[in-house]
Nucleic acid binder design. Structure first.
Length: 764
DNA sequence: GTGCCGACTTAGCATGACGAGC
DNA sequence: GCTCGTCATGCTAAGTCGGCAC
């Protein structure tokens, strides 16, 4: 432990320390009333060359901070005109207007300011091999100790006496959703229950009455947990505020670190609470009980001169305090399920992550320079005499063209059985899956990849896409056939090579090249090429920003499909799609009725035209139910009253939904007989509504199983997106949410004509 | 050469915050 | 002003890869 310790109730340590260090460099503050503030003065400078004008326009804006000198993001020309007019007006009224008062910033906003003041790409690097010079932080925040609820589970239909520790374990199981991804699937439920019950019995002890899982009934505890959720929903605004303040106290104490004198955000400062292990797919250890981590299991990493934080759990102390500037982690501990080390690290917006991100994308850009020679060498090696060389070349082709991961070896007793390129087995490929015969060169690849996500695609190795001038696709197909010949289904296709050999092979072409660089390269290249295709179309210039964003998302989707980034469709999403489909059908039916009405009016048979039924009663009843539920919520004191209020609220909301549905079903009608013009107008309006809803539904359906975020966060060079936004006058916030603008702050100053190519790589 | 482990990146899911639309 | 759907964020599992020990 160190000589100096931090006060456990000092939630301002980062700020006060910052003040201490910056005392001599004190700057004007945004509020003018608080010396805690640190306001950025310098402009971020791009690592790529840029003109002063573009820097002015695209300098990253400190998010959430109102600042008169902060440049606006890209604006459309009409926006610029509006802005110019409004500026004129302001000038005219300036002499008569009251002096403007600056917005009072929240503490979190002020800290944000302090962090954004640090432009790491301008700062001197730490010594060779080191990640930092000084580091100071408050380490992890531990979850509260378990508070027993006293609700007894049933065994053989009878309540059983259990200790608080046993009750905690039972509560872990009760908290698992019976319809969820673990217990909702009979195959995984079996593994989950087996593992949980083994650990639960260890907690119960040998002599305990509970011996058979089928006689266990966790329903009373599950009911109790559901009631707690309902009570939580019924909290008042004041209670909400108090809860938020509590969360913020933890954030201010543990969520920031001082690295080389700069404030940085910590990523995961909350210690993982105990519970059941939620491994993905058919993980053999799912359901096992994850133990509570105590401070003695935690090692911290702080600089020698920094005070080690005081342990916040009374009666406990840190396991070890280390001073290792060669690593990024702030704290580490071992978890009991897989015996793996877990780390507390800085957040994605930090300088550490920013530096490695930039390095990663520059390395991928460098591949532009080398991809030609790699492909030429691969083409030759596909026919090499040595099987090992042919396997290496085939694997490189698969990683390059199909964007598969390298696929390390796994122990299926300890982990889920998932594979990548090198670990593909004969059972994962089907030749000529559609039994077309002849010269068919199709292979169906079907396997579980990372996170047990299904990869299922039929590749036509004989197609133009994979052959062009070099016929590589056909050769790869032949190689696959040879590698699978005379092998059992459970044998590896690439049995002569390993990921280590493959990466060593790649390094002869380019320093630092590994298999995963291909995914970054291909994702970035695909995005750039897809965006270029749309920009070249004649109608592009006349498109609105919203339409351009749709095209961006389409390009993003191509990348996500290439990288097989999927997401599962939730029940809520399915219901929503069904509801939308139902609404669309209603609109179409209503349009038919409207057309019929038009015919009746033309024929003078207005008496046959249906009119709208009164909705007043229905609306009033729903409004009264809502008001009554609100009163109940406000007056609720006890848990029972809170539960009743929440239930009344849910029922009232359902009543209002029914009311809205009722209104929707007769929205095409009038209270009186309409005129011909009115009907024609409504038919046109309904046609537009139907078209809009059809487009919306298609868009939702197309994207429901594709996860766009993963490629945006990890694979596509952000500079491509920033440059595209600048070229096309699309505000960057339409593409990158606030967290990504923070993560990619180093990329914000690129020129509009910036390109992901070998030239960029040469600059580095 | 091989296996193991540490360090860091990549990944999907759950949940809460927020904002568009009524 | 309120609600509901969407999106952002937090959480933590699951990969890759380098380096070290044997």
């Amino acid at each position: 432990m160190t000589k100096e310790t931090m006060s456990s109730d000092d939630d301002n340590f980062t700020l006060s320390d910052l003040k201490r260090r910056k005392k001599k460099k004190k700057r004007p503050v945004p509020n003018g009333d608080d010396d805690d503030d640190a306001k950025p003065k310098r402009k971020p400078v791009s690592n790529a060359s840029s003109t002063s004008s573009s820097k002015k326009r695209f300098r990253p804006k400190p998010d959430g901070i109102v600042s008169s000198h902060t440049p606006e993001p890209v604006m459309s020309s009409s926006n610029k005109r509006r802005k110019s007019i409004s500026t004129e007006k302001k000038k005219k009224t300036a002499s008569t207007a009251k002096p403007r008062t600056l917005k009072k910033l929240e503490k979190i906003e002020r800290l944000q300011y302090a962090m954004q003041a640090f432009l790491w790409w301008d700062a001197p690097s730490p010594p060779e091999g080191c990640q930092w010079r000084t580091m100071e932080h408050a380490c992890v925040s531990f979850p509260d100790l378990y508070q027993p609820h006293g609700i007894q589970m049933l065994y053989n239909g009878e309540p059983v006496e259990i200790t608080p520790a046993q009750e905690e374990a039972a509560t872990f199981f009760a908290a698992t959703d019976p319809e969820g991804m673990h217990l909702g699937n009979p195959k995984t439920a079996k593994i989950f229950i087996k593992n949980f019950f083994a650990d639960f019995r260890a907690v119960l002890g040998r002599r305990h009455i509970i011996k058979d899982f089928t006689k266990c009934d966790f329903e009373p505890i599950r009911r109790h947990l559901n009631e707690q959720k309902i009570i939580k929903k019924a909290i008042t605004d004041v209670e909400k505020k108090e809860r938020k303040a509590g969360t913020n106290r933890t954030l201010f104490r543990h969520g920031f670190a001082l690295v080389d004198g700069h404030l940085e955000r910590v990523g995961n400062y909350n210690m993982e609470p105990p519970g059941t292990f939620r491994g993905r797919g058919a993980h053999p250890k799912m359901g096992k009980i994850k133990s509570r981590v105590i401070p003695e299991q935690v090692q911290l990493n702080v600089s020698e001169c920094a005070p080690a934080p005081q342990c916040s759990v009374p009666g406990h102390a840190w396991g070890e305090v280390r001073h290792d500037p060669q690593v990024q982690w702030l704290a580490q501990w071992k978890e009991n399920i897989n015996n793996q080390v877990k780390y507390m690290q800085l957040a994605a917006q930090s300088s550490f992550k920013g530096k490695s991100d930039r390095q990663k994308y520059n390395k991928a850009a460098l591949l532009c320079l080398n991809i030609g020679k790699i492909r030429t060498a691969t083409r030759k090696a596909l026919r090499a005499k040595k099987t090992e060389d042919r396997q290496l070349a085939t694997a490189v082709w698969v990683i390059d063209r199909l964007a598969l991961r390298v696929g390390g070896e796994k122990d299926t007793d300890e982990e889920a059985d998932t594979v990548g390129c090198c670990s593909l087995r004969v059972e994962h490929v089907t030749f000529d899956p559609n039994e077309e015969g002849g010269d068919n060169k199709e292979i169906e690849l079907e396997f579980l990849g990372k996170d047990s996500m299904l990869y299922k695609q039929t590749i036509d190795f004989g197609s133009e896409l994979y052959n062009q001038s070099d016929n590589m696709g056909k050769q790869v197909y032949d190689n696959f056939k040879k590698f699978c010949k005379n092998k059992r289904k459970s044998e590896e296709i690439f049995d002569k090579i390993t990921p280590i050999m493959l990466n060593q092979h790649l390094k002869q072409f380019m320093n630092g090249l590994t298999a995963k660089v291909f995914r970054t390269y291909n994702a970035s290249k695909t995005l750039q090429d897809e965006l270029a295709k749309t920009e070249q179309s004649s109608a592009w210039r006349s498109r609105t920003a919203a339409e351009k964003v749709v095209e961006y998302n389409n390009a993003n989707r191509e990348v996500a499909i290439l990288c097989n980034h999927q997401r599962s469709v939730s029940k809520a999403q399915e219901t929503q799609l069904e509801t939308l489909g139902g609404k669309l059908e209603t609109l179409k039916r209503q349009k038919k009725v409207l057309k019929k009405m038009l015919k009746l009016i033309t024929a003078g048979k207005t008496e046959k035209i249906p009119v709208k039924k009164s909705e007043r009663e229905m609306i009033e009843a729903a409004a009264e139910a809502i008001a009554s539920a609100k009163r109940m919520k406000e007056e609720a004191k006890t848990d029972a009253e809170k539960i009743a209020a929440t239930e009344a609220d849910e029922a009232a909301k359902q009543q209002r939904r029914d009311c809205n549905d009722g209104k929707f079903t007769q929205a095409h009608l009038w209270e009186k007989i309409p005129s011909q013009d009115q009907v024609i107008k409504k038919i046109n309006s309904w046609t537009a509504k139907i078209a809009k809803m059809e487009m919306n539904l298609k868009h939702k359906d197309d994207n429901k199983e594709v996860s766009l975020g993963t490629s945006k966060i990890n694979y596509m060079d952000p500079r491509i997106s920033v440059a595209w936004c600048k070229r096309n006058e699309v505000p960057i916030e339409k593409i990158f949410p606030i967290s990504l603008r923070g993560k990619f702050n180093w990329a914000m100053a690129v020129e509009p004509d910036w390109e992901f190519n070998a030239g960029i790589a040469k600059q580095k």
